[in-house]
């Protein structure tokens, strides 16, 4: 007869989009479930079960990670940024603006992950060429746009961020 042992919960405390949050969760809980189900930030999506699609991408201590492949417990005491944290003081992040302006999204399901990977890309490389943009979002699937307009949106946002250093975004 199979039995399942009930394991005690672990405490996870994170700073997410600038806010301190603590929850007691099952040790097996994934970070993406923690973000979506415990903290109710449902902008971060789930699109696969093999760390392939990147819909769940968030920044963990500034690094892009696929939050379906990180345990919530591993994120304890970390800083997390999700799509909900991109807009600051009512002002959209230049990448958010550019994705809308250049039609870099259709159904919008990949968009949060795509935005977070792009944020990380531009933090690393403010002037990426087309090849570097392709590589920067290679871990993020989009099934609607054919990527064409996403490339254009990232290029436009990069330009905006270089030229308008005063756009006010700290990200």
């Amino acid at each position: 007869m199979n039995t399942i042992e009930i394991i005690e919960k672990v405490s996870v405390e994170v700073t997410i989009n600038g806010q301190r949050q603590r929850r007691d969760v099952e040790p097996r809980m994934l970070l993406v479930q923690f973000i979506r189900d415990e903290l109710r930030l449902t902008g971060t999506h789930i699109g696969c079960d093999t760390t392939y699609c990147g819909a769940c991408t968030v920044l963990l201590n500034g690094e892009p990670v696929k939050s379906c492949t990180v345990l919530a417990a591993q994120a304890d005491q970390c800083e997390i940024l999700t799509v909900e944290g991109l807009e600051q003081d009512g002002k959209l992040h230049p990448l958010q603006e550019a994705f809308a302006e250049h039609h870099g999204l259709q159904c919008g399901y990949c968009t949060p992950g795509m935005l977070m990977s792009s944020v990380a890309l531009l933090a690393d490389n403010p002037s990426p060429g087309r090849k570097e943009i392709r590589k920067g979002i290679a871990g993020n699937l989009c099934r609607c746009t054919g990527y064409h307009n996403i490339f254009k949106a990232v290029e436009a946002a990069a330009e905006e961020m270089r030229e308008g250093a005063d756009h006010g975004h700290q990200i």
Partner: peptide, 12 residues
């Protein structure tokens, strides 16, 4: 549609 989707405020 983009106003909600780029903010992660869609309802899937």
């Amino acid at each position: 549609e983009d106003d909600r989707l780029i903010r992660g405020r869609g309802l899937f």
